[in-house]
């Protein structure tokens, strides 16, 4: 059942071939891994609770998907590009917007606008550090995240303010058996797919990731594209932070902590190239589902924390190796 010999040898940049390449891209492996983790859990529970596990997986994967999309575009820009300020941006946005709303249902829309504005500000600040001060993105986003985190601490001293009731209701419920959050994440993933695969901006992002100099010489507005990518990542982090705080009953100072690695992990496990220039959107969903189901599976089997972490590491490395083997052979 392994890989079929691949004869098409797609060339990046020409669109029909890219479509073929997309279908053959290694994102299938993340779905396969997610399915295996799901089945393994179901074997243990005797098939009971399948639907609720799936529902929970869709709900919690949504957060990873939303930050993962932003991170994917950043990583696509090529080596050295990564947004480490995602956790701090989420925390700052959630703290400020929930404080502003103060649990008032009437203030949800302005609260969401504030979230977007703060996210926009974070993204612009990140890019200003990168472009104007010529600080490498890793250092720039890491240092700006100290600033955002401190602002979050200073603005509300870690107090947890409840989200307005309708907003909490929206983020914890669903329609047609699907969680609302998953619908939002699906919509965003759909948009990201169109941008990456169908819009000229997506081509530009890939071109920059493959060869910055060549992209520049061929007339790609490099700075404008990088600006959009970093701001987009911050905006997605803002939306995620806003929704996560609404979902879990308030903003926490450490609420974003695990999304630092998670946002990068879902991109890599999803089969996008960590070196940039070659990305895919569907893999992010597969990887996000896999990350949730993997932890659930190991928890369900009642393994100790040490074993659980070691296994998580081994399994992730395996998936990445299998996925990248497939990519090289393609």
């Amino acid at each position: 059942m392994m890989m079929k010999p691949d004869t098409s040898n797609p060339v990046a940049g020409t669109s029909p071939n890219l479509l073929v390449a997309t279908i053959r891209k290694p994102w299938i492996w993340s779905y396969l891994a997610a399915l295996l983790a799901f089945l393994a859990t179901m074997v243990l529970s005797g098939g009971q609770g399948a639907l609720s596990l799936l529902y929970a997986a869709l709900t919690f994967a949504s957060f990873s998907v939303m930050v993962g999309i932003g991170q994917m575009f950043v990583i696509t820009l090529g080596p050295g590009n990564v947004d480490l300020s995602i956790p701090a941006t989420m925390t700052l946005v959630a703290t400020l917007s929930l404080k502003f709303m103060g649990s008032e249902a009437g203030l949800i829309l302005p609260g969401f606008l504030i979230a977007l504005i703060v996210g926009l500000g974070c993204g612009m600040f990140n890019f200003a550090l990168i472009l104007l001060l010529r600080i490498p993105p890793i250092i720039a986003t890491l240092s700006s995240s100290f600033l955002y985190q401190s602002l979050a601490i200073w603005s509300n001293r870690g107090l947890r303010i409840k989200p307005p009731e309708p907003l909490a209701e929206f983020s914890t419920s669903g329609v047609l058996g699907l969680p609302n959050l998953a619908l939002v994440a699906l919509l965003l993933a759909g948009l990201a797919w169109v941008v990456l695969e169908r819009a000229v901006v997506g081509r530009w992002v890939l071109a920059i990731g493959q060869n910055l100099r060549a992209a520049q010489l061929s007339g790609v507005p490099v700075h404008a594209v990088r600006f959009c990518v970093y701001v987009g990542s911050a905006l997605l982090a803002a939306v995620t932070g806003f929704l996560l705080a609404s979902f879990s009953g308030g903003a926490n100072l450490n609420m974003g902590a695990e999304f630092m690695l998670m946002s990068i992990a879902v991109v890599v496990i999803g089969g996008s190239s960590i070196a940039g220039g070659n990305s895919n959107v569907p893999g992010i969903w597969g990887a996000a589902l896999f990350m949730f189901l993997l932890v659930s599976m190991l928890n369900s089997y009642g393994l100790g924390a040490g074993v659980r972490l070691v296994l998580t590491g081994i399994i992730i490395v395996t998936v990445v190796i299998v996925a990248s083997k497939r990519k090289h052979s393609a």
């Binding site: 009971q48 596990l53 997986a57 709900t59 919690f60 926490n252 902590a257 928890n299």
Partner: peptide, 17 residues
């Protein structure tokens, strides 16, 4: 991890089994 959102996710994941 002593955090509400992490606890919520971990519990939601193990409950079905």
């Amino acid at each position: 991890d002593w955090a509400q959102d992490v606890a919520q996710r971990a519990v939601a994941g193990i409950l079905p089994s």
